[in-house]
Amino acid sequence: MQNTNKSRSKDSLKKVLSAQNREQMKYKVRKFIFGSKDTEGAGKLAVIYLLLISIGFVYLYPVLYMISKSFMNLNDLLDTSVNWIPSSLYTNNYVQAFKSMDYWKTFRDSIVIAGVPTLINVVICAIVGYGFARYEFKGKKILIGLLLFSFILPPQATMMPTYVFYTNIGLINSLKAFIVPALLGQGIKSQIFILIFYNFFRQIPKVLIEAAKIDGAGHFRIFRKIALPSAAPAILVVFLFSIVWYWNESYLTQLYVVGAFTSSADTYHWSSLIVSLKNFENSYNNARSVAGSGMVDINESIKMAGTMLSILPLLIMYLVLQKQFVESVDRAGITGE
């Protein structure tokens, strides 16, 4: 009698224990999946990774598509069973695109077209940004408003008179058409760069500048010796973005530098990779008619190879400098209002 009672109580104890255990297990599993307040749960992490990877794939999809298509030969293109991976590494597309774009010359031109205005842009925007940040002159607020306004204004509103103006003073069809606006702080998206420098220079402690002043430094010396060296992250950001935006600008480059309408033989004929990509089909057909039977008819693969070639320099630059790209933005205080 006593024995059975004992065993029963043991049983119930077991039950309670197992129920407790189950509860605990449940709690643990829930904690594992959803996480507590301090740690992320595995399930949550999995969802985050899944989201990131799938969106990342969508992001990369066009690039992957481009790479895969650019290595396909004509048979692969027509064969519906070949979807992603070409049957053989066919590099002839690149050779053809390379030839028709006149790659080396275009590449050199592109670097000059993007590089020279960028250097000027960095210097001028730093000077103007410093002027705005450091001095409290009359009408400063109005001028900053004007700066923002010129950022909002679409370039088309001023394009036609500017084009006429450039033609009259003989800037068109040369690099001068990019250099002069950059010198006057009106290059491509210079307004953003001025604002970046403005934000950055405002964070320099005034004490530092006053100390330099007491030591007998002039205005420009303070700018050169104190402001500029401390602005290295901002300079990097402006440099990188300016180069990218100048490189990718096809519209204004074609209008002002390459010369869409008037091309005279005696001056140097500029070209840039992005512009030649824009007119890829025409230039390819021209090259083909010159070269004769050596080149095949244009197809998607060649176009993709041309696209790839035109963004390749930027891509390489990005892969090398990606850390700077990502980190510099935090340090440059783009968002330091």
Partner: peptide
């Protein structure tokens, strides 16, 4: 790196 890639290559002709 993946998500900032478009800044580099998203230009009109491309």
């Amino acid at each position: 790196m993946i998500f900032f890639l478009p800044i580099i290559i998203a230009s009109g002709p491309v």
